[in-house]
Amino acid sequence: MRLTAQDIADVARLSRLELTEEEKETLAKHINRLLEHFEKLQELDTDDVEPTSHVIPVYNVFRKDEPAPSLPVEEVLANAPDVADNCFVVPRVVET
């Protein structure tokens, strides 16, 4: 499998990253080199192996459904780019 500069551009857009044409080319090369390693791994026969989603054998880690105090609203909003009426203010994303 080979990724093109266009694939890199698509992924970058999904991640809101701005890349120059040069960066796209370079990154495509780097990622393709990585993918070659995975191709090597794919030579292994894994038919009888369950897909692994997590690498540690730990399951069912729960907390009880008990509320605890939240952060004071000033701290909640401390990182907000802009604040009004106790709300985060962001540029409008959807036209209504």
Binding site: R63, D65, E66, P67, A68, S70, L71, V73, V76, L77, D85, N86, C87, F88
Partner: peptide, 20 residues
Amino acid sequence: RSKMFCSCEVAFGGEPNTRC
């Protein structure tokens, strides 16, 4: 009574950003 992945209270209404 509390949220899915943290202990903030679940309620309707109230002042914005007070259950975070």
